[in-house]
Design a protein around this nucleic acid. Structure first.
Lengths: 244, 244
DNA sequence: CCAAAAGTGTTTCGTATACACCCATGT
DNA sequence: ACATGGGTGTATACGAAACACTTTTGG
């Protein structure tokens, strides 16, 4: 572990992905090369920041190492600063051993991150730490205060998905309206009326229908759509744009 | 300056108040006992945190010293972590001299704070630092990155006032509907239709009309209302409650 | 009686909701 | 032909917006 880490401040990432059905979170083992999913030793991806490093760069560094992806969508949503969030006898000893630093109290800045689940490839790190996707509806026990952080991350995207175009970070570039609806339903935890949903979406000018359809599906192939960020940003300038 | 300060992390507060007409921010001199409002030396209230101190307690400490008020409404809204937000030759030297610590890089956590302007009394500190209310529409130049922080604070309450009951922190306990309207207009920077506003407010069960009126006004005295937090919290449990 | 702000209703329009059947494709 | 999900329209209810005059009080 490099000695140029800042032992006062860390970042942790609640990484969300959508498999077409369920919303998932990415969790890793606390220690590399341990038994898969050792009970009580799972955690969110995160790290101490480097001296002079901007927080979001630290989060990006952690996730790029883990997923192999660049330009990951990241948003800061909270700070966790309880002086006893790391138990002295247990968590702090582990952190000291791992970092080689005189760690006393760590304040962590939490980010949520949105990933197109199919694009993230296995990396050396993700294999070593046994990175896995877990359903948001049943997150296993995590170390530190990471369960609280994960819960707060979930609350946050539930709120923000109604106001910001987060969905399109989770879906493939080209998506069907029903995929979009299933994603909203997965995040909000409710079911939506299909006809009303399509009407609402179809009058948003920044969701553009293509002359292209799914293929390889065993039923009527659906029309594909793309999200046009420029149109969205232009609209947003004056009016507040609510998605749903 | 006490040597038990943590030289890595500070808090800064954007303190809002409403004088019945305009939304204002509380600013202080960088150094005590200087000429009133020395140009280029104004700042937001803030301080380094104490080792082991929770961030919100640090913010509360700063504001209690400054205003004499307890239980001030505080909400964290951002982190400012640019490694060069303090200019080495200028800001850092001043901070080192003032704190007596080897300060290298300070990450600051920003809070906005809402105050009933008439309740805040002059304190020794507020006099020494020449604390003054400035209109939000024309905030003078501040040191560090405090102008950016203040702007972000203002954006934040503009957004959140539509969703959370922030107004009642800025108004006296008992208020008239027109005072409430003027506050919304001051924060949102637009004018609202009086009749529609009153209709909307009057059907909110948590804004309770009293059998009591203003007195000492040179015109028809308006009916007074209070905000009932319990009713609000109960309602909020299930439905999301939008105020406006 | 005058100035100043408080207080009050109705109409119109657009958006939200509820609801059930036919269509296109692959196997 | 059948199974699977894709795709469509209408009627009703509710809330948002526009709009001008009368009332009450203190001075």
């Amino acid at each position: 572990m490099p000695a140029h880490l800042n032992p006062h401040i860390s970042v942790d990432c609640v990484v969300f992905g959508f498999d077409g059905n369920e919303l998932k979170v990415l969790l890793i083992n606390r220690d590399p090369s341990e038994n898969p999913a050792q009970s009580g030793k799972l955690k969110l991806p995160g790290d101490l920041i480097i001296h002079g490093e901007v927080l979001i760069d630290a989060a990006d560094r952690v996730l790029t190492e883990l997923t192999g992806l660049h330009n990951i969508y990241l948003k800061q949503f909270g700070i966790f600063d309880d002086p006893f969030r790391l138990k002295p006898s247990f968590d702090l000893d582990w952190l000291r051993k791992r970092s080689g630093l005189r760690v006393e109290r760590v304040i962590t800045v939490a980010y949520y991150s949105l990933i197109k689940i199919d694009q993230s490839l296995p990396t050396d790190l993700s294999i070593a730490y046994n990175a896995r996707w877990y359903p948001c509806t049943s997150i296993p026990p995590l170390i530190f205060d990471h369960n609280r952080i994960a819960d707060r991350g979930l609350e946050t995207i539930r709120r923000e998905i109604l106001i910001e175009p987060l969905c399109f970070e989770l879906l493939p570039e080209k998506f069907t309206l029903n995929q979009l609806q299933r994603l909203y339903e997965a995040i909000l935890g409710c079911s939506l009326d299909n006809r009303n949903f399509r009407k609402k979406i179809q009058r948003l000018p920044y969701i553009v229908p293509l002359n292209e359809r799914q293929n390889g599906v065993p039923h009527k192939p659906a029309r594909l759509h793309v999200f046009n960020n420029k149109k969205y940003t232009l609209l947003k300038k004056d009016h507040n744009v609510f998605i749903l």
